[in-house]
Every structure is written in C-alpha cells, then in structure tokens.
Computed example of a mutant assay.
Amino acid sequence: MCGRMAVTLPPDAMAQLFAAAPDNDLPTAENYNVCPTNTVHVVTSDDGARRLQGMRWGFIPTWYKKPNDGPLLINARSETIAEKPAFRAAARARRGLIVATGFYEWTKDADGGRDPWYITRSDGAPIAFASVWQDWTDAQGAAIRTCAIVTTAANAAMQAIHHRQPVIVEQRDWPLWLGEAGKGAARLMEAGPEDQLRWHRVDRAVNSNRASGPELIAPV
C-alpha cells in the first residue's frame, strides 16, 4: 500500500539522475504531502528516450466516463496486475518510475488512533516506485495522463507497519522496468531486502491531506 508520499528533489535533479528529458510543466515546489489525484513525477521511456513528465496519481481505466466513475486506483497489486482489465495492457507496454523522497504508512494505537510513519531508502537515495500509466480522454476530447504505483506483499521488516509495500526499483533495474532491456520485468515486482528501507514516527498532522511543510517528516 502507498497512499501518500513526499517529494523534495527538484525536477532538474530528477532528470539528471534518470538521464531523462524533463517536461516544461512539472511541479517544481517541494511537496511533503503528495496525495492521490495530485500530479507526480514519472520517468518513462520510448525506444530508449527517457522523459520525465507529470501524471495524475490515480489510474483511470479507459471505460470510465468520468474520473470518479469507479474506485480511485492509486495502487496496482503485483499479484494480479497482468490479469486485471484496468492494468494488464499498461503492465505490458506502459511502465514508468514514480520519483519520490519518501512515503507514509500508518499503524493504529491501542485506542484506534492512526500513527503515521515516514519511510525512506536506508541509503538516502531517491525512491523509484514501479508504476503503470494510462492516457484517459474525457467526453470533450481532453487527455489526462494517469498512473498507479505497483505494490506487493511486504517483507518481514515492513510487516511491522503494513502487510503491503510499494515495489521499489533499484537503479540497475531501471532499464528492465522501463522496457529498455528486453522482457522479464515481472521478476522485479517483489519486495526488496529487509534493509532497503528505514522509517520513523512523525506527527499526526500529516493525517490531514491539507497539511504541508517540512515539519511533516520530522521525527517525533
């Protein structure tokens, strides 16, 4: 599961890291509380030419008449992505990497309160979430590019917080996930090693999708 994230890396730095050409309309401000339906930064590849572009986080299947015609699809389960009508074509041909600094997950205390945790890579590097994307066109012909994060069963360490986790693609595997290195990307759809991620408790202020600012990721 991944339902909220933080992005602090400037687009120019993302573009350099992924050797991708950046679009001109990318979000440039730091965002410590990226929510579903917000625009996220996604790396794609077309015949080896990488592009960093903005997409709506919330995959819209082609048969939706309106963006809210059905469930908000922010995650795609790795176990069923190749079979689900919403995702199967994208899993074969439209894979991308969503770039983030960290993401949030929640546990419940004894009283049922939701305690947020901020999760980052242990090595401090930016996160590259495995994703799939889809163009959706409304009744007026306006196109929206949308995406979802691929998730999988959590590894033993992460299970202390949640039973699911996003698939994180290592730099050596970016070409394979993006379709630049032939077939076999399905093998990447699993949890990373137990020491891949680290986390700390943060303030419950982030429970509100209106909250903002760097204090949201400060340890408490």
Rank of each mutant, 00 (worst) to 15 (best):
M1E: 07
M1Q: 06
C2Q: 05
A6H: 03
A15N: 03
L17E: 05
A19K: 12
A21V: 14
D23N: 04
N24V: 05
L26N: 07
A29G: 07
E30N: 11
Y32G: 00
Y32C: 01
N33I: 06
N33T: 08
V34L: 12
C35K: 06
T37I: 09
N38W: 04
T44E: 07
T44A: 03
S45T: 03
D46E: 10
D46Q: 09
D47P: 02
G48P: 05
G48E: 09
A49L: 08
A49M: 06
Q53P: 04
G54R: 00
M55P: 01
M55W: 00
G58V: 02
I60G: 01
I60V: 14
I60W: 02
P61C: 11
T62V: 09
T62M: 08
K66C: 09
K66G: 08
K66H: 13
K66W: 04
P67L: 10
N68H: 12
N68F: 09
D69K: 10
P71E: 06
L72W: 03
L73F: 06
L73A: 01
I74Y: 03
I74V: 13
A76P: 01
E79I: 14
T80I: 11
I81G: 02
I81V: 15
A82D: 15
P85T: 02
F87M: 11
R88S: 10
A90W: 00
A90Q: 01
R92G: 07
R92F: 02
R94Y: 06
R95N: 14
L97Y: 07
L97V: 10
L97A: 07
I98A: 06
I98D: 01
I98L: 14
A100W: 01
A100T: 12
G102P: 01
F103H: 01
Y104W: 05
D109S: 08
A110T: 13
Y118N: 00
I119M: 02
S122L: 04
S122D: 11
S122N: 11
S122Q: 08
D123Y: 10
G124E: 11
A125W: 14
I127M: 15
A128H: 04
A128V: 07
A128P: 08
A128I: 12
V132S: 02
W133E: 00
Q134M: 05
D135T: 11
T137Y: 05
T137M: 09
D138N: 15
G141N: 07
A143R: 15
R145Y: 01
C147D: 01
V150L: 14
T151L: 13
N155W: 11
A157W: 14
Q159F: 07
A160H: 15
A160D: 15
H162S: 09
H162N: 12
R164A: 10
V167R: 02
V167Q: 05
V167D: 03
V167W: 02
E170I: 04
R172T: 08
D173C: 08
L176T: 02
L178H: 03
G179I: 08
A181C: 07
A181E: 04
G182Y: 05
G182N: 08
K183H: 11
K183M: 09
K183A: 14
A186M: 14
R187C: 10
M189S: 04
E190R: 15
E194G: 12
E194M: 10
L197W: 03
R198P: 01
R198Y: 03
V202I: 07
D203E: 11
A205R: 06
A205S: 10
S208L: 12
S208H: 10
N209R: 12
S212W: 12
S212Y: 12
G213M: 14
I217H: 00
I217F: 02
I217E: 00
A218S: 11
